[in-house]
Amino acid sequence: MIDKRIKTVAEAIADITDGSVVMIGGFGEAGSPSELIHALIDHGAKDLTVINNNTGNGEVGLAALIGNEQVSKMICSYPRSSHSKVFPTLYRAGKIALEIVPQGTLAERIRAGGAGIPAFYTATTVDTPLADGKEIRNIDGRDYVLEYGLKADFALIKCEKADRLGNLIYNKTARNFNPIMCTAANTTIVQARKIVAVGDLDPEIVVTPNVYVDRVVEVANPVIESQLVEEGVCYI
């Protein structure tokens, strides 16, 4: 029998090793797998390369993982945040590397990585400094930049409902990067607000088919990051 359910977030992330490349779902706090990230902080794996659109808020979730100096490189589109000094401080101190990628190129690099497409051309960044050193190809009279697909060792994902096979549905704009990241990691680890019986998710509305998912752990009452930030919680 296939059963991808794992009892605790600690067990779910236990085999993440130093130096792993980890995709973390979410756009700001929406869809951010905070409990899995906190488990990774407890676990302590270091020298991680993390792929996420942002760099976290306050001193919880991704910002806390970065603040705990477990991340040696961030690949993201928007590392600024009005609620976090963690990344800017470490970046200016030379303690963390940054690869800045336009949001759509970031999404497509992840999608391509998951789809077995090693590289693609896009008009995004043509004639800007972010295209420096990259191959340019003129196709039908327009210039395009070569960008490479992204893969990861692990993806940390948050969803609304899952079943034991790993079918997933999401909640509103908490979907964002999560479904594409599920496809691009060797091991996809999901925290679901609720695990339902197989057959309960209408096949017409399954967003992530179970083939992309390796582990599912139920987190019934996930924290709301902005509330923790407001309360001044520090998870380090």
Partner: peptide, 14 residues
């Protein structure tokens, strides 16, 4: 400066 591009380059390209 910490560069932060977000989706702006994709928007102007597309």
């Amino acid at each position: 400066a910490i560069p932060a591009v977000g989706g702006a380059m994709d928007l102007v390209a597309g």
